[in-house]
Amino acid sequence: MSTILLVEDEELNRTLVKAVLSRAGVEAVRTASVVDATSLSAARDRLRAADIDLVLLDMNLPDGNGLNLARELAAGLLPADKRPTVVAVTASVLPQDRAAAIEAGCDDFLDKPYAAADLVATVARHLT
């Protein structure tokens, strides 16, 4: 069973993500456990505390830009074998935003707003 870390400070979005994932048709996605963090520092704590397979990373967080976490992970925040896949989930969808996300070390991105199926497909792609 995989573990997903949802880094998102807006409650509405957390509710939505959890609702979508728990109803997913893909079993790996449906059965994945979701932990959440509402800030970068909380996310770091979660990453150190448990093995995380996938990070769904929002950009505008109270204590900084989500890309900072992506950079830290790329720079070796965790041992190489524990490094999770990072998916940037953001409403900033301009080409330069994407370039910045890739440069920061994100493995994939998902544009807001997303259809439930898009979210499931993205997560499934990285968990299976």
Binding site: N13, R23, K112, P113
Partner: peptide, 16 residues
């Protein structure tokens, strides 16, 4: 960015 944020909830929940 600002328009997409509320739209995300609208599309996401209605999709569900």
């Amino acid at each position: 960015h600002e328009l997409r944020t509320p739209l995300n909830a609208i599309i996401g929940f209605s999709d569900l």
